[in-house]
């Protein structure tokens, strides 16, 4: 399928985990970093969704984004709530919990439900972990830090921003592969699109952050819009490159009939 060189999954995984965690840990000092970290995780998860959804899930690509966020949110709440004495361990604990839940669901999907997808377990684990990082990252950029009881509950859960994180995050994760599905799907285009969807989510979080954090939220908003423009432009460049032809209007070429 792919004769062009692709970024290996392991590199993207490292990019997602390290980028995500660094972003989240910087968020108390600079809230925008949380959203940037989450974008790294979005790019990673889009690649993971791509690998597993290529096999055909039988229920459409969106289902995997939804289960990812379902697992991610449970793990994120658990990880952040559990570590009162050592708040620094929260995101890592959430990551580990998400991986465990993802591994268990992947194992069951593979061996009990018998889905016969060789990469199922690994991808489910990756997707769940990325889901947790996306949720924590975007929430932290809105709340200003990742303290669960102190700031996340009043600033993110209570006013319902978490739902936007949940759903727009899920769309950011599943949309790239859903949109690029096809026999000539290319990783590069997909990753640019993932960056673009992640940046849209970041801009939305920026709007929410303006309300919760004031001026520092506007940085998230502006940076999100700028990043989105960059990634969107890159995506269109790839489309112009890859599409058979780009025309204003006209008939379908005769060769197809």
């Amino acid at each position: 399928m792919s004769d062009v060189k692709e970024i290996t999954p392991i590199n993207l995984m490292l990019f997602g985990i390290i980028g995500g965690l660094v972003g989240i840990y910087l968020s108390p000092y600079f809230p925008t970093a949380g959203a940037l970290g989450a974008i790294c995780a979005v790019i990673w998860s889009a690649e993971a969704v791509r690998r597993v959804a290529k096999y055909g899930l039988g229920t459409g690509v969106p289902s995997i984004g939804q289960i990812a966020m379902g697992m991610g949110i449970i793990a994120a709440m658990f990880g952040l709530a559990m570590v009162k004495s050592m708040p620094l361990a929260g995101p890592i604990l959430a990551l580990i919990t998400a991986s465990i839940i993802g591994f268990i669901i992947g194992w069951f999907a593979q061996h009990v439900i018998k889905m016969k997808i060789p990469v199922m377990i690994r991808c489910m684990t990756e997707i769940a972990a990325a889901g947790a990082l996306i949720i924590i990252g975007f929430s932290a950029s809105v709340a200003g830090n990742y303290d669960f009881v102190g700031s996340l509950i009043p600033k993110v859960f209570d006013n319902g921003v978490i739902l936007a994180v949940f759903w727009v995050g899920a769309v950011a994760m599943l949309h790239p592969f859903n949109a690029c599905l096809g026999p000539d799907e290319k990783q590069k285009r997909l990753l640019y699109l993932a960056g673009s969807t992640g940046a849209i989510t970041m801009a939305l979080m920026g709007i929410a952050a303006v309300m919760t954090l004031g001026a520092s939220g506007s940085i998230t908003l502006l940076l999100g819009i700028v990043l989105w423009l960059i990634f969107y432009k890159k995506f269109w460049d790839e489309v112009y490159n890859d599409a058979a032809a780009v025309v204003g209007t006209g008939l379908i070429p005769k060769t197809e009939a």
Binding site: T59, S63, I64, Q66, I67, M69, G70, M71, I73, I74, I105, F108, A109, I113, F166
Partner: peptide, 10 residues
């Protein structure tokens, strides 16, 4: 909602 999504996808 999280539990719901996990249990409706499985």
């Amino acid at each position: 909602m999280g539990v719901f999504y996990v249990n409706s996808v499985i």
